[in-house]
Write a protein that binds this DNA or RNA. Structure first.
Lengths: 160, 160
DNA sequence: TGCGTGATGTTATAAGATTACATGGGGCGT
DNA sequence: ACGCCCCATGTAATCTTATAACATCACGCA
């Protein structure tokens, strides 16, 4: 799994590896990786784009795994809280983490043309955000960093 | 008006100055700074925190300036599009810009205890986000950078 | 067995945002 | 003055996103 998500890669093994990693982590952390939670993560992993909660819910419904919003939101809460998925605030949508379990300070690059989302990692307390916070005497606990623009592929297509 | 919003300051003059600055800018840019738009900006300026669209709508309603959601959303769209206000994605809420008209790459520091929001400016193409984008071949058009944590004042109160 | 904890099922509703269509007022060319 | 266009506004309806509240179930454990 690479840190940048725009390159082609072996997707089915990427899915399998992620599930296995999360499964192992849940075991050691004493967390219940239940069928719904696992399935939601699989659904998210099938795309390198963000899915809305209701999009996920639709798929769960088709599979008979639950039909009401709280089912999807609860699974997503679990995944997000434990760092297995992230919420993209800009899109009100969710995406699987590409570095499950690693120390977390995600940065997202969102392509406005093809909706692909790449996740990268940065130290939030360094760099310009950290500097702004230090100047203000502000203590950062979490940071949302989401850039919107064009991925390499889409820069060369319509070239809007 | 300072670039960091946690210090005490002369708030009524800050409001007045902002409105005057925006008014002048609208004049030169040929934009209509209508009563609803002006009032919404005033409402936002009265607080150094983000307000939801419906919170704003409630105040407009009390004043007889409009009662349906589109009234508030349209005014907010105008203000955001022209850089006089910003949307805080993390909160689904809006805040007046503290640097109206200046070249814009805002960074927000959101206090989770008192809800104060400070706005600072950074060059988005520099720093860690820019670096991540460059590595990925991604072209940034807009960036959402919102840090959540504790402002100086709240660090010394309950000390959660 | 009985209890507590955490996951699920289900109903209802809150909160945030947009679509669509009707109305009105100001500037401008004729 | 007239008609026209553009932009802003008024309003109803609807859609999307998210949560509250409460019942039930399964498991581990005293």
């Amino acid at each position: 799994m690479d840190s940048i998500g725009f390159e082609p890669h072996d997707h089915s093994s990427c899915i399998h590896d992620c599930i296995a990693a999360v499964d192992a982590q849940c075991r050691t952390a004493g967390l219940q990786f239940t069928p719904v939670r696992r399935r939601v993560l699989e659904i998210l992993l099938q795309e390198h784009r963000a899915l809305g909660a209701y999009e996920i819910l639709d798929r769960l419904r088709e599979e008979g795994l639950g039909s009401q919003p709280p089912v999807a939101y609860r699974a997503l809460d679990f995944l997000v809280k434990n760092g297995f998925a992230h919420k993209i605030e800009r899109l009100n949508a969710f995406i699987a983490c590409t570095h499950p379990g690693e120390h977390h300070a995600p940065v997202f690059l969102i392509c406005r043309a093809c909706d692909a989302v790449a996740e990268s990692q940065r130290e939030p307390t360094q760099g310009q955000l950290g500097q702004a916070a230090r100047e203000a005497g502000f203590v950062i606990e979490r940071a949302v960093i989401e850039a919107e623009g064009l991925c390499p592929k889409c820069q060369h297509v319509g070239a809007a």
